[in-house]
Amino acid sequence: MGGKVTCTLGEVKNRADFIVYWGGNPAECHPRHFTKYTLMQKSPFLPRGRKDRTMVLVDIRETKSAKASNIFLQVRPGKDFELITLLRAMIKDQPISEAQVAETGLTIEQLQDFVSRMKAAKYGVFFFGMGLSMTRGKHMNSAALLTLAAEMNAFTKFVAMPMRGHGNVTGADVIMRWQTGYPFGISFNRGYPRYNPGEFSTVDVLVRGDTDCAFIIGADPGATMPQPAIDHLAKVPTIVLDPHVTHTSKLARVHITTAPAGISAPGTAYRMDEIPLPLRPALKSPYPSDEEVVRRIKEALLEKPDWMGERPQMLQNQI
């Protein structure tokens, strides 16, 4: 079974001698990743810095990141899952032939070399980007790499970490988990948290038109989501909290301008490795913070009669 084996970025900085970027282009998308964490840093364990580290890039095209890597493995588009599954077989010494490998666009020698380097590493790490997690197969592609990392621990230390996108996605994920048990895709309609990605995840709810109101904080779905989702946002009363005018705020019924978090509103941000960092505002803003707006909306809602009927305090069997 799967699971997740990971570490904080400081561990990568101090110990990782074998770094694999999979389906991402850190040179252009996370430009400080090499210098701050993965490649250039020296440590007591890796005194020569870059020279003590090996970097592998796995991607469908030769991006700028390929120049920074020692080894570039160009996988055929849409074959990541197959490649990772082959690697899972190879680390366990399953017989794999040249013919089986052919469809990945790589040779058996390349894979054998990769496997022996993974096993020879003292501390290996996979970073995976949207080229893996947002292409056909989606969560299963991520699961594949996480599983490979977990299985590699039978031989040496190995971890895996997603390269998340913009905004404090990780922070939302962390807090939802401690308050509800689930990271995202949660419904509260029965008075307690229920989880089912695909059913309750935002994009699916909007595309199917399962909601009659939308409240958007810290995101611009109007710019990123598929057209049916955007059409539905325009159709229902949509309320947006954002410091700026966004694609979503333009189609919203209400846009409340808020103070930008980290610049003029304090709080905590969670880094991609779930390390919390304090946000210390540098500027004052005439606008209220997101937190204050939400709190005031909540207070106003408490004035109204509760929408919940008579429900028990506790449920033994959930729906």
């Binding site: 401690w178 048990g181 509260f188 307690y192 948290p193 408490l302 919940m308 959930q318």
Partner: peptide, 23 residues
Amino acid sequence: RAMTPEDHRRTQAFIRSQTRRSG
């Protein structure tokens, strides 16, 4: 918590009220 959604589904749920959070 992130690793055990199957357990969250089978366990007892606390339902929210106007003064109490769900869990």
